[in-house]
């Protein structure tokens, strides 16, 4: 089993990396790009047979406390 956590900067937070990459894409001629947001992707391996609901609860807790900073970031959790 695997948990995937995608962390992105909150909309209100300045994202200079995203802005720089967006400008680079425009310079390269890619049109229609209205925004680039750079975040983090974390993969967590879970023991086979782990209870999905319990893992979801625990990982949400971990994502809130450690994996993301709720002041500046949003996250999305997927377990498969």
């Amino acid at each position: 089993m695997k948990a995937k956590i995608i962390i992105t900067p909150k909309k209100a937070v300045l994202d200079p990396q995203g802005k720089t990459v967006q400008t680079a894409l425009e310079h390269m001629g890619y049109t229609g790009v209205t925004g680039v947001h750079i975040g983090k992707y974390i993969e967590i391996d879970l023991a086979p047979g782990t209870d999905k609901a319990a893992a979801e609860k625990a990982l949400n807790d971990a994502a809130h406390k450690l994996l993301s900073n709720p002041v500046i970031e949003d996250y999305r959790l997927e377990i498969e």
Binding site: P16, T20, N69
Partner: peptide, 17 residues
């Protein structure tokens, strides 16, 4: 201290990277 919640807010990448 901000990560620990002892001070409010956060510190992010300098705007010019």
């Amino acid at each position: 201290l901000t990560e620990a919640g002892l001070l409010p807010g956060a510190l992010i990448r300098n705007r010019d990277l």
